[in-house]
Computed example of a mutant assay.
Amino acid sequence: MHVRTSHLSSRPVRAAMLVLGMVAALLAAALPVAGPAHAAVPDRWGFAYLDNATPPPGYAPDPSRQWGSWASPSANPVKVDQIGLGSYVVHFPLIGGPGGIAHATAVNSVAHWCQIADWKTAGPGQDVYVNCYLPSGAPDNSTFTVLYTSSSGLPATPPGSYGYLNSDSSGTVLTQYNSAGSANAVSKGSTGIWKAWLPSLGLSSYAGDLQVTAVDPKQGARCKVSDWTPGTAGQTVIVACYDASSKPYDTEWTLSYSYLRAVHGPAFPPKSFGYLWFNGSLPALTNYNSSGATNTLGGSGAPFTVTMPSVAVPSDTAHATAYGPSADYCGLYRPWGRTSGSVGLYVACFDPGGAPVKTPFFAAYTSAF
């Protein structure tokens, strides 16, 4: 297993039936051979929402939408520097170290996507580099949410399950975590297609949440969950990635899976979190609210409105990932709202040309508390 500290290596729409064919072939293939387990959850983490697309140097974004596992986050906040058009570095204090993963989600009413370019230890902290793009693939300024999280060991009490992967473009696992102590693995399929195997996690039916983010420092790339097959032995996830012209593209990526856990890994605390998967319906065990309330889905897709009652507690964050065999992608239309204890997540999805589209997605929300 390769432990990731830092890297700067590189990374017309295919018809949906072609992608489905690739997925079918991968699902039929033998499961990939797993490497040693990188087996607490998580021991280092932070999240933030960049609320200013053109931040001044050393900008501290919205304090009600950032937090982390370091001492006194309110007095020692996350800061962001813009380093180019659509290019940012997010400074998480005092959580530096190897491994872990990062996710980013664009927050924009106009079609954009944001991806991870890199992450690395910087002194005592962790720097996460985020790049944002227009549908054309041109860099552009945008607001976004970002999280970094790293886990090791096994949880003392194991409600639910949690795991993550960071894979390079060839399917080599750079870093991974599995709360059951098993070893996650990846196998490479056709261009832009991978099969991730998360053994011993989840249930034999659809349960939990998935998030996927492209990692590419050189060009625009976006990734999504193309297919998902739960089983008694674990979760099989097909990851699909595309370049700016919506052609299948080989790039690095991160994936996380959580069942009865927050998007960055912990469970109880935080007391307030939830997730929802829309795949044309709302499978019961993929629609979770830690308060016991029922999440609901409204809107036409331009945007969707995901309402999660009784969990709105700042500081908090949210992420979204598209699902399905097309090159559509999803983000947040605007920052999540908080009303009378309820959270409203506004999920916007777009086709490759940037037109709003109603497509399946995963959405996740968590408070730090």
Rank of each mutant, 00 (worst) to 15 (best):
V173M: 00
G337V: 05
A214K: 10
A244Y: 10
L18W: 08
I193R: 00
V90F: 08
G181N: 02
D243R: 08
V263A: 03
G160F: 06
T5D: 02
F362D: 15
Y164G: 02
A207M: 06
A60K: 06
H38F: 14
Y59L: 14
T305S: 11
A180M: 09
A233P: 06
T321L: 12
G86A: 09
R44V: 12
V128P: 11
W70Y: 10
Y259D: 09
G354M: 12
V215G: 05
T321E: 14
C223G: 11
A368F: 13
L27R: 14
S190V: 10
V343H: 09
R338T: 03
H7M: 12
S69Y: 08
G301T: 12
I83V: 15
S190N: 06
C223L: 07
D227F: 13
H264T: 04
K247V: 14
R338H: 06
Y288R: 03
S342P: 01
S190G: 13
N108S: 15
G299H: 14
A104D: 01
T232G: 09
V19R: 13
Y329N: 04
A106G: 01
A15T: 00
D51K: 11
V347F: 05
T296F: 04
P139A: 12
T145L: 02
D216V: 02
P63H: 09
I193T: 15
S74K: 12
I101P: 11
T366Y: 01
C132F: 01
Y177P: 11
A302Q: 14
P360R: 10
G96P: 11
A364L: 10
L297R: 05
L332K: 06
L50W: 02
I101N: 03
E252R: 14
K247Q: 13
C241A: 11
S326G: 11
N52E: 08
G331L: 13
D168T: 07
R222G: 07
P248M: 09
V128N: 00
P356N: 12
S109A: 14
S182P: 06
A183K: 00
N295K: 04
V146E: 07
T317E: 04
M1F: 05
A322V: 05
P325M: 10
G189L: 11
A327G: 13
Y275M: 03
R222I: 05
L174F: 05
Y177G: 03
G301P: 07
S226G: 15
T236R: 14
L18V: 15
V41A: 12
D81V: 05
R44C: 06
S6Q: 13
T294H: 13
S300V: 10
C132A: 11
S69F: 05
V80N: 07
H264E: 08
D328F: 08
S9R: 06
